[in-house]
Design a binder for these strands. Structure first.
Lengths: 292, 292
DNA sequence: CTTTTTAACTGACTTAGGTCAGATAAGTAC
DNA sequence: GTACTTATCTGACCTAAGTCAGTTAAAAAG
């Protein structure tokens, strides 16, 4: 092995990224507010409302937290109120001015991010690399939640999904626009579309639609390559089965392909049993069923 | 396109990496020295000797720089002397104690890096991703320099090289141990081994060895995938040709394969002309020559 | 030799960021 | 109701980091 070289590669990464992202933090200073205060404003903008939650997230001393909140309050960016259940705890909200200020910070960050992306001539590759590094460093598990089939995050996931199918099958798959009828198939009470996301970015999805009375079909299961091997697909499938029961399905079917061996292995591992072909999908050559 | 999502992917990367690498900077605090002073010590340990050079690199005010140097001097970690050419300028060196302290910091960083690497179950992929991100963020061009064929950096480059050949040819190539005679072929006055490196990590290499009287052969040209498309191979080949002239060669030959189309294109672009097979390498199917 | 420029240094000052010991007020246990 | 606990706040204090004006001594220009 070349452990010594590997260490140097990681440390070089550290150096280059620290200086590049340091510039990103500098942009926070562009609005004449100290970093600490800006970070608090940002956390509130993310949707955190309780002071204790903010303190835990930012790792701040209660005194310092208090002072930062006072600063923002004096600037008219936030408003604090006592919690209804426990009047000792305080709730924080952005005022209108605070929302505007938060949005200004968001635009600064987006602009900086866009500039970095523009610097790369190999954007797809770079993004995949960023995802893999994020996934390695990220401790929190992805959050699985329902979404409307027309959500932009689903559009993104589907684009990645078809990109991967094209790669695996060695021929081009098109991203099909979803018709209104199809969309209804993926919404309760007929079906469901689930997203797995981390920090608001979709890194996996899976859907359910009606096949026959009492039987649902699992469709569009995809996990971002960077996140594979962490049990996300298993959690996603569990969630889909849970939803299927809630929708009144007694069994689930699905088709897949020998070009997706991990999928075939996954369904076997999850207790799906191979059955005969149940549709005329020319790309499918494995068919599964599971009784719920 | 999914620019919005792409921005969120980069920003998520930023967040996860900042917290992970923040811990790395924390480890600098483990030796009870403020970050600023530790950074100065580190820069000196890297080999910087002139105060102005240090200031430019660290972006410090001259007053602050001076104070940090005084702190390190009082701790007995560095010694300053007036420059011989210009007594206003000062030169800085580590004392023995300073060297020991610097090494202690290096060990801390290495340890932290190793811990991060150990966290990943897909180390090869992770390292490739780290390289690509570094390459995107890094502004400085790689440094091309001579190296002994037995240098560990060359061993690493050769391992990556054969790994890539195996991938491209679809069969396994072995990393061959270099014999003493082979090694001499790659050292002046018979040949040369060049490394292209960034921050001390090899990201490309190329070599020259004698073929016939007056004719040298170009061998082992490899560029880390993360760095391709930035003109490194062109610079490397230029450097090799320069060296070849210095060694008295009038022409260069090389062989390559249709499995390495970028290489074939590169040699065409650099003015090499296709010739008949000049050796019995079963893996080669393209043969080139250039008169210097 | 005098004047100007330059590299590094020194002292005075500012700000960000953080710690810590109470104070205050609301909730909980008895 | 009293005693204890908890969440937040306030004031006093500290350190790291950086700015700035001016000093010192060497080098360069005249």
């Amino acid at each position: 092995m070349h452990t010594e070289t590997d260490i140097r590669r990681l440390r070089r990464f550290n150096r280059s990224v620290t200086s590049a992202l340091g510039a990103m933090d500098q942009s926070f200073l562009g609005r004449g507010r100290p970093l600490g205060v800006a970070r608090v404003l940002n956390a509130i903008g993310q949707g955190m409302t309780e002071v204790r939650e903010l303190r835990a997230y930012l790792g701040l001393d209660s005194g310092l937290m208090s002072r930062n909140l006072r600063t923002l309050e004096e600037e008219g960016l936030i408003a604090t109120t006592a919690s209804e259940e426990d009047a000792r705890q305080r709730q924080v909200q952005l005022t209108e001015a605070g929302r505007a200020e938060f949005n200004a910070y968001e635009r600064l960050s987006d602009q900086h991010a866009l500039e970095i992306l523009g610097r790369s001539r190999r954007r797809e590759e770079l993004l995949a690399a960023l995802d893999l590094v994020s996934a390695t460093f990220c401790a929190t598990a992805p959050h699985i939640h329902r979404a409307d089939p027309r959500d932009v995050n689903i559009a993104y996931a589907m684009a990645e999904y078809t990109k991967e199918l094209s790669l695996r099958f060695g021929r081009s798959f098109a991203v099909s626009q979803m018709s209104e009828e199809e969309r209804l198939d993926f919404l309760p009470p007929r079906g469901i579309f689930l997203l797995a996301s981390v920090d608001g970015v979709a890194m996996g999805c899976g859907a359910l639609r009606p096949l026959q009375p009492g039987t649902g079909e699992v469709k569009r299961v995809w996990i971002n390559p960077a996140w594979r091997g962490r049990g996300v697909s298993r959690r996603l499938m569990d969630a889909l089965e849970q939803e299927a029961r809630g929708l009144g399905y007694g069994s689930l079917r699905l088709d897949t392909s020998r070009h997706l061996p991990e999928a075939v292995a996954l369904y076997h591992a999850l207790g799906y049993r191979e059955i005969d072909r149940y549709n005329d999908n020319p790309d499918a050559d494995h068919f599964f069923e599971k009784l719920l």
